[in-house]
Design a protein around this nucleic acid. Sequence first.
DNA 1: TGCGCTCTGTACCATTTGGTACACTGCAAT
DNA 2: ATTGCAGTGTACCAAATGGTACAGAGCGCA
Lengths: 189, 189
Amino acid sequence: MNQKKTARTREDVLPELGEVFREHGFEGASLADITARTGLGKGSLYHFFPGGKEEMAEAVLDHIDHWFETEVYQPLREDEDPRAAITRMLDGTDAYFRSGRRVCLVGVLALNLTRDRFAARLSGYFTRWRDALASALCRLGHRPELAGDLAEEAVVAIQGGLVIARALDDPSAFTRTLERLRVRLLDAG
Amino acid sequence: MNQKKTARTREDVLPELGEVFREHGFEGASLADITARTGLGKGSLYHFFPGGKEEMAEAVLDHIDHWFETEVYQPLREDEDPRAAITRMLDGTDAYFRSGRRVCLVGVLALNLTRDRFAARLSGYFTRWRDALASALCRLGHRPELAGDLAEEAVVAIQGGLVIARALDDPSAFTRTLERLRVRLLDAG
DNA sequence: TGCGCTCTGTACCATTTGGTACACTGCAAT
DNA sequence: ATTGCAGTGTACCAAATGGTACAGAGCGCA
């Protein structure tokens, strides 16, 4: 009934923080942008994240990583039905990126020089995705090196689809990309 | 023998300007970065680009657009040997992006909110690439709608390959992407 | 009631920001 | 030689930057 006006815990600012970094990039995101978006003053912000912007971005990346780990990577690695796990990955990805209307923060941070600050997190995100998908493809019957190549192609396509969808301001470019992947990943099993 | 210490004309600062925007993004690129990289003081900078950062970025985008138009798109549209034109596109793309060590400025600008300032240029760059490639694929014997889809897939893959190569700090992820495209674009003709 | 703690707003800081003003340099045409 | 103008360096500006200090607010608990 009585809903709080502002987010209270460190945890629930993370999504809003993520949106700011998505929209402005790391260097471009000012504390003014951040306080405006989160509703938190500098006081609270530096209370939760004594390390400033850098710690905020790290926390957001950890949060994202955790989501993908449990929702996508683990099923890909462990689900006894790899076909179902891949379908779940595609649907989850479509939902997470809002069918192409939302951009990938990891991709955004990877492009600038800021990449170097978060190098380990950024490369970990993509290599774990690729390896988890390769694992599922292997269990689906693909030969190992072919599975690795196909998995890389899929991760590449997803990132590219987000860039193009945003550049064209046409989310359908992303959903078409996912459809192509659905065919390519599931048909040859 | 006597080489000039600094770039002189508006034209030859454009590559250096482009690098700054690539490395920092639009919002993140400060005038200090720009003067440092180009060797030009604010005086000269604002003499060449009275509109400031925005005009600089527009000039760089025009420059890039012109390069791709003459080196890639026109051959794709007009070369009587579409197979050769596609090979030229792949080789030119590999060279332009330094085999994955360089990032695509158009892609970088597309991801942030700054996209809106340059919306027409950004979408034009990708749509013209896709349509030119689709034209070559048609002449190679593909059915028109299939050619359009394949062309979109290629443009998506190139952008994605750049993101992944940069995130992993592994340019070979980009060259592998180009190899996959070489097969897929040229084999089914 | 009063203690202790997390959380928050505000005032403040030095530095940097994008941008302007302007006086100067050098050279090309007269 | 003089003029004119493209190109340049420097000083300057108000505003915004990331970050700090600190005095409180609110609340759980004794």
